[in-house]
Design a protein around this nucleic acid. Structure first.
Lengths: 153, 153
DNA sequence: GGAACGAGATTGAAGGTTCAACTATTCCTG
DNA sequence: CAGGAATAGTTGAACCTTCAATCTCGTTCC
């Protein structure tokens, strides 16, 4: 086994702050969403992507990609969201293998209510404690990471 | 309900890049660790913290805090790690309610092997695609977030 | 045109996490 | 110093995610 090339002390500090910080932040947002609206962040992301799609509907595979979830996970989650009445599934007319997930009106209103509180929490725990220049750096950096991770599959 | 104060377009872009990027990155690292060494990132973090503690042992509550996990989760995970022989639990002499988790020699060696590959992946998917200045910004920003989130509990 | 291959999505079981309830010990206060 | 409140940790059940297997439909190619 070749010698391990460790991170420098400052790289290590920054990397650890990133891991710890994102885990804690995402966790806190998840719990606040769950407590206030009975939605997990994963469910919330799904509703958001649907709400922004034309006619508020999307193919399952694309929805999975946009919400950074596996197809299987999306299937299960959609089943749950469907039984709550927030989403409905219909078969895709152009490709009979495909399925379209559509946001219901009830789903849209649930999302509106959840988003109101969620944005407050995001400001409170993240945006307001981060320097604007650092926020921009985060945007740049993580966009590059997305490209890199997606390429590695 | 008061009017919702949305994020600005650029704040929104940066925030979303952060959420998507961290989810995908953490996911990719988790899978690589699992495929190569049968460890989840949560388990890995536990081993790391133990390896750095004096005598490689730590109270459960402190370990939970350092690894950003709930106590319950840590209990379950420790049970698994213990049955793999990577960790051992002993009662704390000074406080009979307490429990000390200790890294075994086997656990230490498993960690050494896993860390070697893990660092490579972290460089590959994160450190090497991020500008050094942006990395420092991430360190600053997320450290502030940790303080804020911890204060909010 | 039909056999083989590939893509889209779902399913069930296994594994991990969360939540609330519980035991045991220590701390605090009158 | 007795008794209640608080702290440390574990447990089991419910819930969610992952993994591999499966089903259906489309595409290719001889």
């Amino acid at each position: 086994m070749p010698e391990t090339r460790w991170l420098s002390p400052s790289q290590q500090r920054d990397w650890r702050a990133f891991v710890d910080g994102s885990v804690r932040l995402l966790d806190a947002l998840d719990q606040s969403l769950k407590a206030g609206h009975g939605l997990s962040m994963a469910e919330y992301e799904i509703l958001v992507r649907l709400s922004e799609a034309p006619e508020r509907k999307l193919r399952m595979a694309q929805l999975a990609a946009e919400a950074s979830q596996s197809r299987s996970r999306l299937s299960h989650t959609c089943t749950r969201l469907e039984s709550k009445g927030l989403v409905r599934r219909e078969t895709c007319p152009s490709d009979k293998r495909g399925v379209l997930a559509r946001l219901t009106d009830e789903g849209f209103h649930a999302l509106e209510r959840a988003a109101h509180d969620h944005v407050i929490a995001v400001r409170d725990l993240f945006v307001d404690v981060v320097d604007p220049g650092d926020l921009a750096a985060i945007g740049r950096a993580l966009s590059a990471v997305i490209v890199r991770v997606d390429k590695s599959r």
